[in-house]
Amino acid sequence: MSAIELDDIHTYYGQSHVLQGVSLAVEEGENVALLGRNGVGKTTTLRSILQLTPPRAGTVRINGEDVTGLATHEVAQRGVGWVPEERRMFSHLTVAENVRAAIPPDADPAERMQLAFDRFPDLEDLREHEAGSLSGGQQQMLAIARALVGDNDILLVDEPSEGLAPLIVEEVVEALQSLPDDKTLVLVEQNVPMALALTDRFYVIDHGEVVAEGDSAEASLEDERIRRYLTA
């Protein structure tokens, strides 16, 4: 039983047929990268898993359970966390409130908050600041903290390095590397070396389909499988 299983999913944005039969599987504890050019459907794949943009055909399974057609919050409650492109902070809420919003109702809020701040001490200093006033890097950390606080064993992370200065990207990489081993990670990234360094396996997506896959350890930017689909 895989943590995530996508079986021939077709997803549309309006009339646009974005995912045209995507199939992939991610095992528990694995870290997998989704590579590909802009607009090929990487983000849509993540959204389809979360049922934010539900697939019109095909199945999505989380830990063996068919979640296709469920409401997003129900999928999220099954332990799927999302760190979206553009971070998507609740800008008018404070840092602390952003984290609190992610804490499940049956958990102890104070305890969870402390865990989050232990992992991201810089955020603790900012806890009463409005999230909208944070820098890009700080927001990225907050987004990751939010996803971790919610009892999530599966993390869907979308372009975490986007728009960040190289020094900050290093911090983000560190944060992702320090994730517990039992977490399952699906990482969408344009920065191929970074993606390969953080993951065990990778898939390449082009025109809404999976066109290549392999082990991250053996691959690089020069890899034929990757280079074909990533040049602009």
């Binding site: 979360l50 934010l52 409401a71 997003t72 919050h73 999220a76 409650q77 966390g81 999302w82 979206p84 998507r88 609740f90 800008s91 008018h92 809420l93 409130e97 952003n98 609190r100 919003a101 992610a102 499940p104 109702p105 939010r146 919610g150």
Partner: peptide, 25 residues
């Protein structure tokens, strides 16, 4: 209250709130 927090989060970004497990509906 957490209801209030959920409402304020949902007002700003309902999708994100849902992805955090909040039943926005």
């Amino acid at each position: 209250t957490s209801y209030g927090l959920h409402i304020r989060a949902g007002s700003e970004d309902a999708e994100m709130a849902q992805a955090l497990g909040i039943d926005v509906r």
